[in-house]
């Protein structure tokens, strides 16, 4: 239990998807204009991660990795399908994103319009595929670990986009040089926030 809590905190602050790995930057920069839409997108990312990461882990654990299919029959024990993991992970992610898109369109058309092209882009949000690959790489052993790590990463991403959106809402009242307004200043802001977050890297939990 303690271990899971540590994993959760670490995935939010130390291994933050945006500030430590720079994954999922495109939608992060483009949707962070207002707090409301960025909270919506952040919640969608958490939800998609919560579903996709365990599913991908199960597929990897029971079908793809070397010797994973031994539970079906002993003859399959020396089969290694891990070269397929990339295309399978992305297929699972794309299917689930399509599902989320339909649900959002049905229940919240205003959010659907606000998110625009970036809802389908969650499928290619590097953070989602990144989590699936990190889970594979770090060899988490139980499904609860995988779920906690995925939710933690999602919360970290949510936190980052909500923070940037809040700063950008405030900054509209500031006198920024004209060419730097909007996108330019958000790049520089993210850079400064990333430098600040680098101080978490040394902490060992």
């Amino acid at each position: 239990m303690e271990n899971l809590f540590n994993l959760f905190v670490r995935s939010i602050f130390i291994d933050n998807m945006i500030f430590a790995y720079f994954l999922g930057m495109c939608s992060y920069l483009a949707v962070s204009k207002t707090v409301k839409t960025s909270v919506g997108l952040g919640a969608a990312v958490i939800f998609v991660l919560l579903v996709t990461a365990p599913v991908n882990w199960l597929i990897d654990h029971y079908l793809l990795r070397a010797g994973a299919m031994a539970w079906i029959s002993p003859e399959l024990a020396d089969l290694d399908l891990s070269y397929l993991s990339f295309i399978i992970f992305i297929a699972v992610i794309a299917a689930i994103v399509q599902l989320v898109e339909m649900v959002v369109e049905k229940f919240s058309p205003s959010l659907y319009n606000a998110l625009g092209i970036f809802l389908p882009l969650i499928a290619v949000n590097c953070a989602i595929l990144g989590v699936a690959l990190f889970v594979q790489e770090r060899e988490y052993t139980t499904i609860s670990e995988v779920t906690v790590y995925a939710v933690g990463s999602g919360v970290g991403w949510f936190l980052a986009i909500a923070t940037l959106a809040a700063i950008r809402e405030k900054i509209t009242y500031s006198n920024i040089p004209k060419p730097l307004r909007g996108l330019g200043i958000s790049f520089i802001l993210t850079g400064l926030m990333a430098i600040a977050f680098m101080s978490f890297m040394g902490i060992k939990i």
Binding site: F22, K178, P179, L180, R181, G184, I188, G191, L192, A194
Partner: peptide, 24 residues
Amino acid sequence: PPMALITIGVIIWVQRSRTKELQE
């Protein structure tokens, strides 16, 4: 990595000060 973000930010700055129609 953070400096890549800031470098791109500066590139945007230069580009937008040259082409006015891109300014927000």
